[in-house]
Design a protein around this nucleic acid. Structure first.
Length: 925
DNA sequence: GTTCGTACTTAGCATTGGCTGG
DNA sequence: CCAGCCAATGCTAAGTACGAAC
C-alpha cells in the first residue's frame, strides 16, 4: 500500500496524531479495493490492528487512574497544561478551557498507550429488536441501524423527489395555496434568512462591559467603574411587581388587566407573532427591555453547634466558609455515585483544603489546630455523617409539616420572587426561563469528567452582568453589592450573565421557551430544516460523488456528511481533552470508535454528548466503507482522528454554500422531522380505534425518531420490578375476566352454546399454577387489608377515648378472607364460578367482562409502551427535533386532542405551531 | 487558518406535584 | 382520603456555531 507519510508537510486540519495523505492517488484507491476484495469471514485484517474496539473489556482497563490526566501529550514542552491538581483550584491559575485539544504535533508516538478508553456511562442502545418497535420494517433480524437505515433509504428517495418538486414549484414563485401566511412564505422570508449573528451587537460596548476572560480566573478587578449607566436617574422601581415601570411603555400591547375574559386570565394580551409581519432585521432582538435582575440563592446558614464534621474521630471547628463547603459534600452522601468516585473525592478534597487553609485551618474544641491531611474514605478520617444526618433530619421534618404550612411558605416565597419571574420585552410581559443564579455546590460533570467534585463557588453580584434597555431602570443589586457591569446590547437575548468558576463557562438568564423570541427562533429552526428539503437531493448527490474525490479533505468531508446525514451524528466539535469528559461527534471520531467488518459493516462505539454511549452496527455504502478503511489506515492508531483533515468549521462552511444557514445541526432537525413526518403519514389511522391506541402509534413513531437521535435514559432501578407488577396486574385482570365469564355460565348455562366455548377459555398466559398463586395472593391481600383497617379503626377509637375492639373482632372480620379462600377452592374443584353481586344477569356480567377487557388492553398498551421506553427518552426529540406542526396536524387528523401529545408547557412553547396550523390538516413538513 | 469569546440550543437526571386507585 | 407513582417540570451540563482576534 502506498506508504503515506504520517507527517505531511501540508497543513492539516488537525494533527494530533498520524495524518492521512492530502491526496489520494488512483493507486491508493485501487489498493484499497484490493484489500477489500479479499474479504475474509472475520473482521477485516485491515486497520484493526488492536482488535476491535468494542467496548467492554477495553473499557475496563483503564480503571481509576483517576486524577491523572488521561493523556498528555507527553511530548512537548511544558507549555502544555500540566494539570497539576493543586494548581487548578487556585484562584490565579489559568482556567482550564484554554488549551483546547492540543494542536501541536505529538511526535514520537512510540508512545505506547492509546488514549485511555472511556469508562462510560455506557448505556447500551436498545437494539431495535428489544425495543418493541412494532413493525419498523419487514425483516426482523437486522440490527437496529440497518433497519432504520433501510427505512431511511426509502424515505430519502421520497425526499429527493420532494426536493425536486419543491424547487420546481418554487421556481414558479408563488404557489399560494390559500394557506395562512406564515407557512407559505416562510421559505424565502426574512425570518428564514441568514442567521448570521451580527457581531456582538453593540459589540464594543458589550465587550467592554463584560470583559470576562474565559481564561482568567482573575480576581475581578476592574469592575467597571465605566459602566456608564448604572447611575440611572430613576432607581425607582425594581421592587414593584411585574408591571413595574409602567411609566413610558408603548402600552400598546400592555393592556393592563382590564377587560380580560373571565377570571384567572393573565393581564396581557398575547402577542401572536406568528400572525404578525416578519421583522426586517432579526439580529435586533428588542428595542426596550425591562427586568428586575436575578434571584440569588439564600445565604448559607451555619450548622447548629451540635453538628460537626469529624476528623479522626474528633469534632472539628470550621470557619463559615469551609463549613459550607463541607456541607456540600455532607449533604450528598446518599449519592454514592458521586461521593464514592475517586475523582470526585480528590477534586473536592483539594478544594476543601484550599478553603480550609484560606480560612485559617481547622481547630478542635479547645482551639488547637488540627491538620486535615487525608480524606481517606475507607477509614473515614473525614467523617461527614453527622452533617448528612442533620440535613436529612431537617429535610424530613420539612416534608412532614402540615400541608397548610408548606403552602403558606410557598406562597410567601412566590410573593418575594414574583417580580423576577417576568420581564418586559418590547413592552410585552414575557416569562423568564430560570431567573435564579445557580447556587453553590459541588460540580457534577457527566460521565468521566475530570473536574467532577470541584467546588462551584457562590456567585456574587459583582460577577453578574446585567443586560437591559437603555431607558429601563437598572435593578438594584443586593444591599452592599454592585453588578459587575450593566450593558444594553439589544442583539443579545439574555438578561443577566455570569461566568462559572469550575470550567469558566457562561451562564445566562434568558426568557422561557414560551416567549416570543424563543418561539421565533424555534420556528426559524424548523423552517430552516424544511428549507433543506429543497436541497437535499443535490447535497446527497454531491457528497456521494465526492466520496471518491482525490482530495483527501474533500473525501473526508463527503464521508462525514454521509454519516451525519445517514446516522444523525452530531457535528463533533473539538474538545478540551484535559478538562472535559472525552466525548466525540462525527468530526472528532477517533480510530477506536469505528470498527469495520467486511464487506460493508461499520460498528460505531463511542461516547457522545453527555457521555451517552452510541453503539450501532450499520451497513454502509461501499465507498464509505472503503473510505473509512482508508482513513484508518496505518500508521493511524488508537487516539488518532479519523477525519484528520476536517473540522466542523470547514464542514459547516461547505454546507452553507448550499444554503444559507445550513450547518451540521440542521441535518439532525431535518432528518428527525422528516422521518417523523414519513412515519406518521404511513399510519393509516383507523378512526375507530381507541384514542389510547392512536397515542401509542404516535409514540411508536416518536420512539423511532428518538432512537435515530440516540436519545437515551437510564433504566430506572425499579424498572424490572415495575414491569413485573404491571404484568401481574394484567394477568390478575385476565383472571377476573375469566371468572366473570364463568359467572355467566352460572347464570345461564345455555350461553356456552350461544357464545361458543372459546369465549370461556382461559387466557393463554394464565396457567393453573399461576392461578393458585394468584388466589393465594388475593386472599393474603384481603387479609392484610382487613388487618390494617382494624388497626386503624382501633387507633381512632383510642384517640376518641373509646376502648379498642377486642381481638375477637379482628378474627371475625378475617373470616371474610377465609371465605374467599374457600370460595376459590371450591371453584378450583368444581370448575365453576358462582355469580357474584346482586341480581347478576347475563347482560350485566357481559358488560363487566367487556370493561375488564378494555382495561386489559389499555394496560397492555401501557406496558408495551413502557417497555419500549425503558431506555429511550422520547421527550428530547419531541421538544427539540420534531416539528411541532407535525404533531398538531396528526392530532387533528386522528381526532386526538393535542393535550394527549403536548403537556401544558409544551403547548405553551408550541403555541405558534398549534395556532398557525390550526385544524388545517394539509400542512406538511 | 486557529483560537478565543460568546450566545444560544440540546440533554439527561433530580425533584415536584397532581392524579389514581386502593 | 391518602400514599405511592409517574408525568411534568426544574436544573444545569454539554453541546453547536460563529464572529473577532490573532
Amino acid at each position: 500500500m502506498a506508504s503515506d507519510s504520517s507527517d505531511d508537510d501540508v497543513p492539516l486540519a488537525r494533527t494530533n496524531g498520524h495524518a492521512s495523505a492530502p491526496r489520494i492517488s488512483k493507486a491508493d484507491d485501487r489498493a484499497m479495493d484490493k484489500s477489500m476484495s479479499k474479504a475474509r469471514p472475520g473482521p477485516t485484517g485491515v486497520s484493526i490492528r488492536n482488535g476491535p474496539v468494542r467496548s467492554d473489556d477495553a473499557m475496563d482497563m483503564d480503571s481509576p487512574a483517576k486524577g491523572a490526566p488521561k493523556r498528555k501529550p507527553r511530548s512537548s514542552l511544558g507549555q502544555s497544561v500540566y494539570y497539576k491538581d493543586d494548581s487548578d483550584s487556585d484562584e490565579g491559575a489559568p482556567m482550564a478551557k484554554r488549551q483546547k485539544a492540543r494542536h501541536q504535533k505529538v511526535e514520537s508516538d512510540s508512545d505506547n498507550e492509546p488514549i485511555a478508553k472511556k469508562k462510560q456511562n455506557g448505556k447500551l442502545p436498545p437494539s431495535i429488536k428489544d425495543t418493541n418497535l412494532g413493525d419498523l420494517s419487514d425483516d426482523d433480524d437486522e440490527p437496529l441501524g440497518t433497519k432504520l437505515a433501510q427505512k431511511k433509504a426509502s424515505i430519502e428517495k421520497a425526499a429527493a423527489k420532494e426536493a425536486r418538486a419543491a424547487r420546481a414549484s418554487d421556481a414558479k414563485a408563488k404557489k399560494a395555496t390559500s394557506k395562512k401566511a406564515i407557512k407559505e412564505e416562510s421559505d424565502d422570508e426574512p425570518l428564514a434568512k441568514p442567521k448570521k449573528r451580527q457581531s456582538n451587537g453593540s459589540a464594543a460596548l458589550a465587550k467592554k462591559a463584560n470583559g470576562v476572560k474565559k481564561a482568567s480566573t482573575k480576581k475581578e478587578p476592574e469592575s467597571d467603574s465605566d459602566a456608564p449607566i448604572a447611575t440611572k436617574a430613576k432607581r425607582a422601581a425594581p421592587a414593584a411587581k411585574g408591571k413595574a415601570a409602567t411609566a413610558k411603555k408603548p402600552a400598546k400591547f400592555v393592556k393592563e388587566e382590564s377587560k380580560e375574559n373571565g377570571e384567572g386570565e393573565e393581564d396581557e394580551e398575547e402577542f401572536r407573532w406568528w400572525d404578525a409581519p416578519k421583522k426586517e432585521d432579526d439580529s435586533i432582538k428588542w428595542t426596550t427591555l425591562e427586568h428586575n435582575g436575578v434571584i440569588f440563592p439564600p445565604p448559607y446558614e451555619r450548622l447548629p453547634k451540635s453538628v460537626k464534621l469529624y476528623y479522626d474521630g474528633k469534632p472539628v471547628e470550621l470557619e463559615e466558609e469551609v463549613e459550607e463547603v463541607a456541607t456540600f459534600f455532607g449533604s450528598m452522601l446518599h449519592s454514592t455515585q458521586n461521593v464514592e468516585n475517586p475523582t470526585f473525592q480528590k477534586n473536592f478534597f483539594n478544594d476543601f483544603k484550599d478553603v480550609l487553609k484560606k480560612t485559617g485551618g481547622a481547630k478542635d474544641r479547645a482551639g488547637n489546630k488540627i491538620e486535615i491531611k487525608d480524606f481517606d474514605k475507607d477509614f473515614p478520617k473525614l467523617d461527614f455523617t453527622k452533617i448528612y444526618e442533620h440535613y436529612k433530619t431537617i429535610g424530613d421534618a420539612k416534608k412532614a409539616r402540615p400541608a397548610a404550612e408548606k403552602k403558606a411558605e410557598k406562597a410567601a416565597r412566590d410573593l418575594v420572587e414574583a417580580p423576577f419571574l417576568f420581564c418586559k420585552w418590547d413592552g410585552r410581559k414575557e416569562k423568564i426561563g430560570n431567573p435564579r443564579v445557580e447556587p453553590p455546590g459541588l460540580f457534577r460533570g457527566r460521565g468521566e469528567h475530570p473536574k467532577t467534585g470541584t467546588v462551584k463557588k457562590r456567585v456574587l453580584p459583582e460577577q453578574v452582568t446585567i443586560n437591559i434597555g437603555k431607558d429601563a431602570p437598572v435593578p438594584a443589586p443586593p444591599k452592599g453589592h454592585k453588578w459587575k457591569a450593566v450593558q444594553h446590547d439589544n442583539k443579545a437575548t439574555w438578561l443577566a450573565m455570569w461566568q462559572e468558576n469550575v470550567n469558566g463557562n457562561y451562564k445566562y438568564i434568558m426568557l422561557a421557551a414560551n416567549s416570543a423570541v424563543k418561539g421565533q427562533a424555534d420556528f426559524k429552526k424548523f423552517e430552516k430544516a424544511r428549507e433543506l428539503k429543497k436541497h437535499i437531493d443535490r447535497i446527497r448527490a454531491d457528497y456521494t460523488k465526492e466520496l471518491r474525490s482525490e482530495i483527501m479533505a474533500d473525501r473526508q468531508r463527503a464521508t462525514a456528511m454521509y454519516l451525519i446525514d445517514e446516522f444523525a451524528l452530531r457535528a463533533g466539535n473539538e474538545k478540551d481533552t484535559d478538562n472535559e469528559a472525552e466525548t466525540v461527534g462525527c468530526c472528532s471520531l477517533k480510530f477506536e470508535h469505528v470498527t469495520l467488518e467486511d464487506p460493508d459493516k461499520v460498528i460505531f462505539d463511542f461516547l457522545g454528548k453527555d457521555s451517552i454511549r452510541f453503539y450501532n452496527e450499520f451497513k454502509v455504502d461501499r465507498q464509505v466503507f472503503k473510505n473509512l478503511k482508508m482513513f484508518k489506515k496505518a500508521p493511524k492508531e488508537e487516539g488518532d482522528d479519523i477525519f484528520d483533515r476536517l473540522t466542523t468549521t470547514q464542514l459547516n462552511k461547505h454546507l452553507s454554500s448550499y444554503m444559507t444557514g445550513l450547518t451540521a445541526k440542521v441535518f439532525r432537525t431535518y432528518n428527525a422531522s422528516w422521518t417523523m413526518s414519513s412515519l406518521l403519514q404511513e399510519l393509516k389511522i383507523d378512526q375507530n380505534i381507541p384514542v389510547a391506541e392512536k397515542i401509542k402509534l404516535y409514540n411508536d413513531c416518536n420512539r423511532k425518531v428518538a432512537i435515530l437521535c440516540n436519545h437515551k435514559r437510564t433504566v430506572g432501578a425499579g424498572h424490572e420490578a415495575q414491569m413485573e407488577k404491571l404484568g401481574d396486574r394484567i394477568k390478575g385482570m385476565k383472571y377476573q375476566k375469566w371468572r366473570t365469564k364463568m359467572m355467566i355460565l352460572d347464570v345461564d348455562s345455555k350461553q356456552k352454546k350461544r357464545k361458543g366455548a372459546e369465549y370461556f377459555e382461559l387466557d393463554s398466559d394464565l396457567d393453573e399454577e399461576w392461578i393458585l398463586q394468584h388466589q393465594q395472593f388475593l386472599v393474603e391481600e384481603l387479609r392484610t387489608k382487613i388487618t390494617k383497617k382494624f388497626e386503624k379503626d382501633n387507633e381512632k377509637r383510642e384517640a376518641d377515648g373509646e376502648k379498642p375492639f377486642p381481638e375477637k373482632e379482628l378474627a371475625e372480620r378475617l373470616k371474610a378472607a377465609k371465605e374467599l379462600e374457600a370460595k376459590y377452592k371450591k371453584e378450583n374443584k368444581t370448575k365453576k364460578v358462582e355469580a357474584e353481586g346482586k341480581g347478576p344477569t347475563v347482560e350485566k356480567l357481559e358488560g363487566q367482562a367487556e370493561k375488564l377487557d378494555e382495561r386489559i388492553r389499555n394496560l397492555e398498551l401501557q406496558s408495551a409502551d413502557r417497555e419500549g421506553n425503558k431506555e429511550v427518552a422520547l421527550g428530547t426529540s419531541k421538544i427539540n427535533y420534531i416539528d411541532p406542526r407535525l404533531t398538531v396536524v396528526f392530532a387533528a387528523k386522528a381526532k386526538v386532542p393535542i393535550e394527549k401529545f403536548f403537556s401544558k408547557t409544551l403547548r405553551d412553547k408550541f403555541k405558534w405551531a398549534i395556532e398557525s396550523v390550526g385544524d388545517d390538516e394539509s400542512w406538511e413538513f
